[in-house]
């Protein structure tokens, strides 16, 4: 059996370009899904039942259906009954943000309600408004507690961005699969793809382990 590793070296620039898109998708999605998740968490803690129900429906819809379906749906179904047609990259970000925001909202909600009532009372007793207690007392403490869960979501997100290749977003998966088709070198290209994902993902996974140890001990 002859190997054609030169295919990998010859296409290194395309692998690199794909990896950059993968990182961009991950960073952009998380950057939008933290405020998005926080907003959904606040809505789910709203005193108004209708607001809570709407937010819950959104979260449960996106948590309970496959991400790949959500991406397909925004890209192919939405334009069939509306004038809305986003370019592939924007579609990918929208799908990922809706999905990750839903997961984050559950993480944030759990973090917020884990802060005991006494902390609220202590803040209110000083004359603070509820918004001030939330911003200065509850959220900073909740942030420490949710950091490990958030880091875990980050690493799954990094890997799940590969699903956006189905709508031709030129991320690492898309580029790799395209090179494979063009050169008929399955083993070499897919091995290179795995190596690149692993090289980027492994340090992140180790960082998450460290965050879990660091902040679990702080509890």
């Amino acid at each position: 059996m002859t190997f054609h590793w030169h295919v990998v070296w010859d296409n290194l620039d395309r692998f690199a370009a794909g990896a950059v898109v993968t990182v961009e998708l991950t960073v952009l999605t998380m950057a939008l899904s933290i405020p998005g998740g926080l907003l959904l968490a606040f809505l789910r803690l709203s005193p108004f039942a209708a607001v809570r129900a709407a937010a819950t429906a959104f979260v449960e819809l996106f948590r309970s259906t496959p991400l790949i379906l959500q991406i397909y749906w925004v890209y192919y179904v939405l334009p069939t009954f509306s004038e809305i047609q986003f370019p592939a990259f924007e579609t990918a970000v929208i799908g990922l943000v809706c999905n990750i925001s839903s997961y984050n909202s559950e993480t944030f909600r759990a973090g917020i309600v884990s802060i005991r009532a006494g902390q609220w009372n202590a803040g209110l007793a000083l004359g603070m408004s509820r918004a001030q207690v939330m911003a200065r007392i509850v959220l900073p403490q909740a942030a420490m507690r949710v950091l490990p869960a958030l880091a875990t979501t980050w690493v799954s997100l990094f890997k799940d961005t590969s699903l956006v290749s189905v709508i031709n977003v030129e991320d690492l998966s898309y580029q790799s699969l395209k090179i494979r088709t063009e050169t008929f070198t399955i083993l070499e290209v897919l091995t290179a793809m795995a190596a690149i994902y692993w090289l980027m993902g492994y340090p992140q996974a180790k960082l998450v382990d460290w965050i879990h140890r660091r902040y679990k001990a702080a509890e």
Partner: peptide
């Protein structure tokens, strides 16, 4: 509440 200080059984300092 600004004019009434309160001290709690479990201190409730902000950790």
């Amino acid at each position: 509440r600004q004019r009434m200080g309160m001290v709690f059984q479990n201190f409730e300092l902000f950790p």
